[in-house]
Simulated assay, not measured.
Amino acid sequence: MVPVITQQRKIMKRKHIVAGNWKMNMDYDAGRDLVKAVADKLQPSDTLVILGTPYIHLRNAASIIKDISNLKIAAQNCHQEESGAFTGEVAAGMLASCGVDYVILGHSERREYFGEDDQLIASKIDAALAAGLSPIYCCGEKLEAREAGTENDVVGAQVEAALFHLSTEQLAQVVIAYEPVWAIGTGKTASPEQAQDMHAHIRALLAGHFGQEAADGVSILYGGSVKPGNAKEIFSKPDVDGGLIGGASLKAADFIAIVDSF
Protein backbone atom coordinates (compact mmCIF):
# COMPACT_ATOMS: atom_id res chain seq x y z
CA MET A 1 0.00 0.00 0.00
CA VAL A 2 1.30 3.44 -0.89
CA PRO A 3 1.43 5.62 2.23
CA VAL A 4 -0.72 8.71 2.22
CA ILE A 5 1.27 11.86 2.90
CA THR A 6 -0.71 14.66 4.46
CA GLN A 7 0.67 18.10 3.76
CA GLN A 8 -0.02 20.85 6.24
CA ARG A 9 0.20 24.51 5.38
CA LYS A 10 3.39 25.88 6.83
CA ILE A 11 2.76 29.08 8.76
CA MET A 12 5.70 31.43 8.99
CA LYS A 13 6.55 32.43 12.54
CA ARG A 14 5.94 36.12 12.89
CA LYS A 15 8.35 38.36 14.73
CA HIS A 16 7.32 39.96 17.98
CA ILE A 17 8.33 43.60 17.58
CA VAL A 18 8.37 46.58 19.93
CA ALA A 19 9.25 49.78 18.09
CA GLY A 20 9.72 53.15 19.74
CA ASN A 21 8.81 56.35 17.93
CA TRP A 22 10.58 59.25 19.61
CA LYS A 23 8.91 61.79 17.31
CA MET A 24 10.53 65.26 17.57
CA ASN A 25 12.09 64.75 21.00
CA MET A 26 15.57 64.38 22.51
CA ASP A 27 18.56 66.60 21.75
CA TYR A 28 21.82 64.87 20.85
CA ASP A 29 23.09 64.21 24.37
CA ALA A 30 19.71 63.07 25.71
CA GLY A 31 19.19 60.78 22.73
CA ARG A 32 22.62 59.21 23.12
CA ASP A 33 21.93 58.54 26.79
CA LEU A 34 18.54 57.00 26.03
CA VAL A 35 19.95 54.64 23.41
CA LYS A 36 22.68 53.56 25.84
CA ALA A 37 20.13 53.02 28.63
CA VAL A 38 17.90 50.86 26.42
CA ALA A 39 20.90 48.89 25.18
CA ASP A 40 22.11 48.29 28.73
CA LYS A 41 18.70 47.14 30.01
CA LEU A 42 17.66 45.02 27.04
CA GLN A 43 17.89 41.27 27.56
CA PRO A 44 18.56 38.81 24.73
CA SER A 45 15.25 37.45 23.44
CA ASP A 46 13.27 36.64 20.31
CA THR A 47 11.56 40.04 20.50
CA LEU A 48 12.89 42.52 17.96
CA VAL A 49 13.28 46.01 19.42
CA ILE A 50 13.47 49.06 17.15
CA LEU A 51 14.32 52.64 18.10
CA GLY A 52 12.75 55.21 15.78
CA THR A 53 14.83 58.34 16.34
CA PRO A 54 15.14 61.78 14.75
CA TYR A 55 17.74 62.03 12.00
CA ILE A 56 20.42 63.56 14.24
CA HIS A 57 20.69 60.36 16.29
CA LEU A 58 20.70 57.71 13.57
CA ARG A 59 24.40 57.22 12.93
CA ASN A 60 25.42 57.35 16.58
CA ALA A 61 22.55 55.10 17.66
CA ALA A 62 23.44 52.54 15.00
CA SER A 63 27.02 52.53 16.27
CA ILE A 64 25.95 52.04 19.90
CA ILE A 65 23.67 49.06 19.17
CA LYS A 66 25.69 47.38 16.39
CA ASP A 67 26.56 44.30 18.49
CA ILE A 68 23.04 43.71 19.84
CA SER A 69 21.27 41.33 17.49
CA ASN A 70 17.68 42.08 18.54
CA LEU A 71 18.03 45.89 18.61
CA LYS A 72 17.68 47.92 15.41
CA ILE A 73 17.32 51.57 14.36
CA ALA A 74 14.52 53.22 12.36
CA ALA A 75 14.21 56.62 10.78
CA GLN A 76 10.87 58.41 11.05
CA ASN A 77 10.48 59.36 7.38
CA CYS A 78 12.23 59.40 4.02
CA HIS A 79 11.81 61.09 0.65
CA GLN A 80 10.42 59.20 -2.31
CA GLU A 81 13.25 60.15 -4.71
CA GLU A 82 16.77 58.73 -4.73
CA SER A 83 18.44 62.16 -4.86
CA GLY A 84 17.97 65.65 -6.24
CA ALA A 85 17.17 69.25 -5.44
CA PHE A 86 14.91 68.59 -2.46
CA THR A 87 16.29 70.86 0.23
CA GLY A 88 15.73 69.55 3.73
CA GLU A 89 14.78 66.04 2.66
CA VAL A 90 16.58 62.74 3.26
CA ALA A 91 16.63 59.84 0.79
CA ALA A 92 16.18 56.21 1.79
CA GLY A 93 19.64 55.35 0.50
CA MET A 94 21.15 57.98 2.77
CA LEU A 95 19.45 56.36 5.74
CA ALA A 96 20.73 52.93 4.76
CA SER A 97 24.26 54.32 4.60
CA CYS A 98 23.95 55.33 8.28
CA GLY A 99 23.20 51.79 9.43
CA VAL A 100 19.43 52.21 9.51
CA ASP A 101 17.31 49.08 8.89
CA TYR A 102 13.75 50.40 9.20
CA VAL A 103 11.79 53.54 8.36
CA ILE A 104 8.39 54.63 9.71
CA LEU A 105 6.08 55.69 6.87
CA GLY A 106 2.49 56.88 6.71
CA HIS A 107 2.27 57.96 10.35
CA SER A 108 -0.93 59.83 11.12
CA GLU A 109 1.05 62.96 11.99
CA ARG A 110 2.68 62.93 8.54
CA ARG A 111 -0.76 62.57 6.99
CA GLU A 112 -2.36 65.25 9.16
CA TYR A 113 0.34 67.92 9.39
CA PHE A 114 2.26 67.42 6.15
CA GLY A 115 -0.51 66.44 3.77
CA GLU A 116 0.89 63.02 2.88
CA ASP A 117 -1.68 60.97 0.94
CA ASP A 118 -1.86 57.29 0.09
CA GLN A 119 -0.18 57.72 -3.29
CA LEU A 120 2.81 59.55 -1.83
CA ILE A 121 3.16 57.06 1.00
CA ALA A 122 3.13 54.17 -1.50
CA SER A 123 5.97 55.81 -3.43
CA LYS A 124 7.97 56.21 -0.21
CA ILE A 125 7.45 52.52 0.56
CA ASP A 126 8.82 51.70 -2.89
CA ALA A 127 11.85 53.92 -2.29
CA ALA A 128 12.53 52.36 1.10
CA LEU A 129 12.36 48.81 -0.26
CA ALA A 130 14.62 49.72 -3.19
CA ALA A 131 17.22 51.00 -0.70
CA GLY A 132 17.06 47.81 1.37
CA LEU A 133 15.04 49.32 4.23
CA SER A 134 12.01 47.68 5.83
CA PRO A 135 9.03 50.06 6.01
CA ILE A 136 6.96 50.24 9.16
CA TYR A 137 3.72 51.23 7.44
CA CYS A 138 1.20 53.07 9.62
CA CYS A 139 -2.53 53.04 9.01
CA GLY A 140 -5.56 53.91 11.11
CA GLU A 141 -8.85 55.72 11.38
CA LYS A 142 -9.91 58.99 12.95
CA LEU A 143 -12.57 59.21 15.65
CA GLU A 144 -15.35 60.13 13.23
CA ALA A 145 -14.77 56.96 11.21
CA ARG A 146 -14.78 54.83 14.35
CA GLU A 147 -18.01 56.44 15.55
CA ALA A 148 -19.60 56.00 12.11
CA GLY A 149 -18.62 52.32 12.01
CA THR A 150 -16.53 52.77 8.85
CA GLU A 151 -13.14 52.04 10.37
CA ASN A 152 -12.70 48.81 8.40
CA ASP A 153 -13.39 50.59 5.13
CA VAL A 154 -10.98 53.44 5.94
CA VAL A 155 -8.12 51.19 7.02
CA GLY A 156 -8.80 48.78 4.18
CA ALA A 157 -8.48 51.55 1.61
CA GLN A 158 -5.19 52.68 3.17
CA VAL A 159 -3.73 49.16 3.14
CA GLU A 160 -4.80 48.54 -0.44
CA ALA A 161 -3.36 51.84 -1.70
CA ALA A 162 -0.02 51.40 0.09
CA LEU A 163 0.68 47.69 -0.24
CA PHE A 164 -1.35 45.89 -2.89
CA HIS A 165 1.05 46.86 -5.69
CA LEU A 166 3.90 45.01 -3.96
CA SER A 167 5.08 41.47 -4.64
CA THR A 168 4.81 38.84 -1.91
CA GLU A 169 8.59 39.04 -1.54
CA GLN A 170 8.38 42.78 -0.95
CA LEU A 171 5.47 42.38 1.47
CA ALA A 172 7.63 40.08 3.56
CA GLN A 173 9.91 43.07 4.27
CA VAL A 174 7.03 45.25 5.53
CA VAL A 175 5.83 45.73 9.10
CA ILE A 176 2.34 47.17 9.56
CA ALA A 177 1.39 49.39 12.50
CA TYR A 178 -2.30 49.95 13.17
CA GLU A 179 -2.70 53.27 14.96
CA PRO A 180 -6.23 54.40 15.77
CA VAL A 181 -5.73 58.15 15.45
CA TRP A 182 -8.19 58.80 18.27
CA ALA A 183 -5.89 56.88 20.66
CA ILE A 184 -2.58 58.60 19.89
CA GLY A 185 -1.37 60.99 22.57
CA THR A 186 -4.88 61.22 24.02
CA GLY A 187 -4.51 58.73 26.84
CA LYS A 188 -7.30 56.69 25.23
CA THR A 189 -6.52 53.16 24.17
CA ALA A 190 -8.45 50.82 21.95
CA SER A 191 -9.56 47.81 23.93
CA PRO A 192 -7.55 44.65 23.33
CA GLU A 193 -10.63 43.30 21.55
CA GLN A 194 -10.84 46.35 19.26
CA ALA A 195 -7.14 46.04 18.45
CA GLN A 196 -7.49 42.31 17.71
CA ASP A 197 -10.53 42.88 15.48
CA MET A 198 -8.71 45.44 13.32
CA HIS A 199 -5.49 43.43 13.16
CA ALA A 200 -7.47 40.37 12.07
CA HIS A 201 -9.23 42.50 9.45
CA ILE A 202 -5.90 43.75 8.09
CA ARG A 203 -4.51 40.22 7.96
CA ALA A 204 -7.62 39.00 6.15
CA LEU A 205 -7.19 41.77 3.57
CA LEU A 206 -3.58 40.70 3.02
CA ALA A 207 -4.62 37.05 2.76
CA GLY A 208 -7.26 37.88 0.17
CA HIS A 209 -4.69 39.60 -2.05
CA PHE A 210 -1.35 37.90 -1.34
CA GLY A 211 -2.49 34.54 0.05
CA GLN A 212 -2.77 33.25 3.60
CA GLU A 213 0.85 32.17 3.98
CA ALA A 214 2.13 35.64 3.06
CA ALA A 215 -0.39 37.28 5.38
CA ASP A 216 0.57 35.00 8.26
CA GLY A 217 4.17 36.16 7.95
CA VAL A 218 3.48 39.90 8.39
CA SER A 219 3.95 41.41 11.85
CA ILE A 220 1.13 43.83 12.70
CA LEU A 221 1.82 46.20 15.58
CA TYR A 222 -0.64 48.20 17.66
CA GLY A 223 0.17 51.88 18.11
CA GLY A 224 -2.02 53.86 20.47
CA SER A 225 -1.04 54.75 24.04
CA VAL A 226 0.62 51.44 24.89
CA LYS A 227 2.05 51.55 28.42
CA PRO A 228 3.71 49.06 30.79
CA GLY A 229 0.37 48.58 32.51
CA ASN A 230 -1.63 47.55 29.44
CA ALA A 231 0.97 46.07 27.08
CA LYS A 232 0.73 42.46 28.25
CA GLU A 233 -3.03 42.28 27.72
CA ILE A 234 -2.85 43.95 24.30
CA PHE A 235 0.04 41.76 23.15
CA SER A 236 -1.79 38.60 24.25
CA LYS A 237 -4.18 38.82 21.29
CA PRO A 238 -3.36 36.39 18.46
CA ASP A 239 -3.05 38.97 15.68
CA VAL A 240 -1.26 41.64 17.74
CA ASP A 241 2.45 41.07 17.17
CA GLY A 242 3.79 44.00 19.17
CA GLY A 243 3.54 47.75 19.46
CA LEU A 244 4.62 51.07 18.00
CA ILE A 245 5.30 53.02 21.17
CA GLY A 246 5.21 56.80 21.43
CA GLY A 247 5.57 58.59 24.78
CA ALA A 248 6.61 55.51 26.74
CA SER A 249 9.59 55.00 24.42
CA LEU A 250 11.21 58.15 25.82
CA LYS A 251 11.82 56.50 29.20
CA ALA A 252 14.12 53.50 29.09
CA ALA A 253 12.52 51.75 32.09
CA ASP A 254 9.00 52.07 30.67
CA PHE A 255 10.08 51.01 27.20
CA ILE A 256 11.92 47.94 28.46
CA ALA A 257 8.93 47.03 30.66
CA ILE A 258 6.79 47.00 27.50
CA VAL A 259 9.35 44.84 25.71
CA ASP A 260 9.33 42.45 28.66
CA SER A 261 5.54 42.11 28.36
CA PHE A 262 6.18 39.34 25.84
Rank of each mutant, 00 (worst) to 15 (best):
I202M: 01
M12W: 03
A157C: 04
R59S: 15
G185D: 12
E144M: 14
G52N: 03
V174R: 01
A200L: 11
K237F: 08
A190R: 04
Q7C: 10
A74V: 06
F255V: 01
G224W: 02
P135I: 07
D101N: 12
G187Y: 07
F210Y: 06
A19L: 14
L163H: 02
S249P: 06
L51A: 10
I50P: 00
E169T: 14
P3R: 14
I64A: 09
A195L: 11
V38A: 02
D260I: 00
F235W: 06
L71E: 06
Q194S: 11
G84C: 08
K13H: 10
A183K: 08
A37C: 05
C78V: 05
V2F: 12
Q119P: 00
E112Y: 11
L34C: 10
M1T: 13
M94H: 15
I176P: 00
H107E: 13
A145K: 03
L206F: 08
L129K: 05
K41N: 06
P192N: 12
V174E: 09
C139E: 01
S225Y: 07
F164P: 04
E81T: 09
A61C: 15
Q212D: 14
T87H: 11
P180V: 08
P238Q: 10
S167D: 14
P238S: 12
D46Q: 11
I17H: 07
A231Y: 06
I11G: 02
